[in-house]
């Protein structure tokens, strides 16, 4: 039986338009291919990281602090996965 491993990391939204359609899409597309469960929380609101709609509904403005939590079994590379996801939210965007 494999043990569960989970990681939590905070990230500040860098896109000057906040977590809008394009970063949310990028994030969800990336999260969907991961074997992990991905949750993103903004204050007390939490979203399924694989749903761009859920992510948009967090209404995360530029500068908002989000917590990303991912859960997977021990064999999966949780650290690399969370780093990649953080990078998407920390990116200043291409359409500022």
């Amino acid at each position: 039986m494999s043990a569960k491993s989970s990681l939590r990391q905070s990230v500040v939204v860098a896109n000057p338009n906040g977590l809008h359609m394009r970063p949310a899409t990028r994030f969800a597309q990336h999260a969907r291919v991961l074997p992990h469960r991905v949750t993103v929380c903004h204050g007390d609101k939490c979203a399924d990281g694989k749903s761009s709609l859920d992510l948009l509904m967090l209404i995360a403005m530029p500068g908002a602090e989000l917590w990303i939590e991912i859960e997977g079994d021990d064999s999966s590379d949780t650290a690399a996965a969370i780093r990649a996801l953080c990078d998407i939210l920390a990116a200043p965007g291409d359409d500022a």
């Binding site: 597309q29 749903s51 761009s52 709609l53």
Partner: peptide, 16 residues
């Protein structure tokens, strides 16, 4: 451009 890909990903959204 990526905007319409964003729409496509939204149509496929399980939550929606």
């Amino acid at each position: 451009v990526g905007i319409l890909t964003g729409h496509a990903v939204m149509y496929e959204d399980a939550t929606l």
